[in-house]
Simulated scan of single mutants.
Amino acid sequence: MDNLNSQTFDYTNLPKIRIKDFIKDMKIAKEKLPLDINELVDNTSLERALNIPFKIFKEIHKKCGPHVFKNSKDNINERKIDDTYNLTILEFQKKEIEKKKLNGFKSKTSARNPPTKDFELIEYLKELKYPAQQKIRHPEAILTITFYPPNQIYSQSHIYPCQIATHVDQKFDVIGLNLLTSLKDKIYCNSDYGLCEDISEDPEKPASYFTKDIFKSGFFLIENTFYNDMRQNSNVDYSEIIIKWTSDPSIKSGPYLSQTMESTKFDDLEIVLGKPYMYLHQGDCQHLFIFSDLRLINRFDPHNELLYPIRTFIVSEKLKYCYVCGLNPTKYITFNDPHVPDEPSLFCKECYMCLHYNNERKKVGNFKAYHYKDRNTTLNTRRFSTFLK
């Protein structure tokens, strides 16, 4: 709540969009336009439909048509450096391009190279076969939802407030038919895979449950309405105490409403594009998110409704390696470990077994151990499975 209220930008004057009304309005507008602009580029009826001179339209199509846009992987070798100026930075850029030509282009996500939709994934999904009854009925809206990393209220020292993370963490494409719960189940967060079961007595025992299997409650806060996940009888309505608190006239906030997430579809929502909303789960893990785009589905999108929501982007995390060998990725994390000076400590399987068990595989020392889970180990490492999971 504090994080949302701390935003200084005034969103009150921005128009609210009801998804159902958007689909209806776009359907009416689409009926007035030609069916396929690409097929009617040379047709003078397009000039009348768009109410712009046909010469201007041809120029726009030439510079902004689908043929212009390429994946950066395709045009990296076509990039040229202007030799007009003798600048040191240009020499560095030339060397970087030559390096990428030799080693192959690898995409990086940074502040200067913002995350984009994975077009190879979209093409892969479009080629999947599916029954006719799963085909999306037109017109249908696609919402692009951008999530930011979870914001902790206090830093580790519990003295200085943390800054809100501004880099993108995940992106999803959803359709109006999707329930809010379908998006909640696709959001990845490390706090959902918290440590629950001590496996120090049996290191080969697989993890049988995580925090997300115990604490399943959560809500989306969108336009003063809390959408709570109440699919399980044990789920808690996190918004109840907030609504009760804001009912006090001295609290200048609200009023707030409460609805269930499992009975609400995206086309029931009324949103403001670009306005920050909040997703809360695991008690106090808060994610800011925005609706960054709203459009009608087109021929470039997958038309199988069961594929949505589609995670079109997720930021990669730096792989954590074993504290002992520094070569292998982490598989175990220990606490109160007498064998190492660090608390907690991370181990690969080989180092963990050598340090903590004898030849008879009996535990040596009094410590607690858990399977280590992060984004790299939890999500399937195969390219497209990561996005579909």
Rank of each mutant, 00 (worst) to 15 (best):
L183K: 08
K184E: 10
K184F: 15
K186S: 12
I187V: 13
I187W: 02
Y188S: 05
Y188K: 06
C189L: 15
C189V: 09
N190E: 08
S191K: 14
S191I: 14
D192K: 11
G194P: 00
G194V: 06
L195H: 11
L195P: 00
C196N: 05
E197I: 06
I199D: 05
S200T: 10
S200M: 07
E201D: 15
D202R: 11
D202P: 00
K205E: 11
K205S: 09
A207W: 13
Y209F: 15
Y209V: 02
Y209C: 03
F210A: 01
T211G: 06
T211S: 13
K212T: 10
D213R: 02
I214G: 04
I214E: 07
F215Y: 13
K216V: 12
K216W: 12
S217K: 06
G218V: 07
G218I: 09
F219D: 04
E223K: 10
E223I: 05
E223G: 07
N224A: 10
T225N: 01
Y227K: 06
Y227E: 04
Y227A: 09
M230Y: 07
M230H: 05
R231M: 15
Q232A: 13
Q232N: 13
N233Q: 15
S234W: 01
S234H: 07
S234T: 12
N235S: 10
V236M: 11
V236R: 10
Y238H: 01
Y238R: 03
E240N: 14
E240W: 09
E240M: 13
I241T: 14
K244S: 15
K244Y: 12
K244V: 05
W245P: 00
W245C: 08
T246M: 00
T246R: 02
T246W: 00
T246N: 07
D248T: 06
P249C: 03
P249M: 08
S250Y: 11
I251H: 08
I251E: 12
I251M: 14
K252F: 10
K252C: 07
S253Q: 12
G254R: 03
P255H: 09
P255Q: 08
L257K: 15
L257Q: 11
S258G: 09
S258H: 11
Q259E: 13
T260V: 09
T260A: 11
T260N: 12
E262W: 01
E262K: 08
E262I: 07
S263Y: 04
K265Q: 13
F266R: 06
F266M: 10
F266I: 12
D267S: 08
D268F: 09
D268E: 10
L269C: 02
E270Q: 12
I271C: 04
V272I: 15
L273T: 15
K275Q: 12
P276Q: 00
P276R: 00
P276A: 04
P276H: 02
Y277T: 02
M278A: 13
M278S: 13
Y279D: 01
Y279V: 04
L280D: 06
L280F: 04
L280T: 08
H281Y: 01
H281S: 03
Q282D: 01
G283L: 07
D284T: 13
Q286M: 13
H287V: 04
L288N: 08
F289C: 03
F289H: 02
F289D: 00
I290A: 04
F291N: 08
F291G: 02
S292K: 01
D293M: 05
D293V: 01
L294T: 15
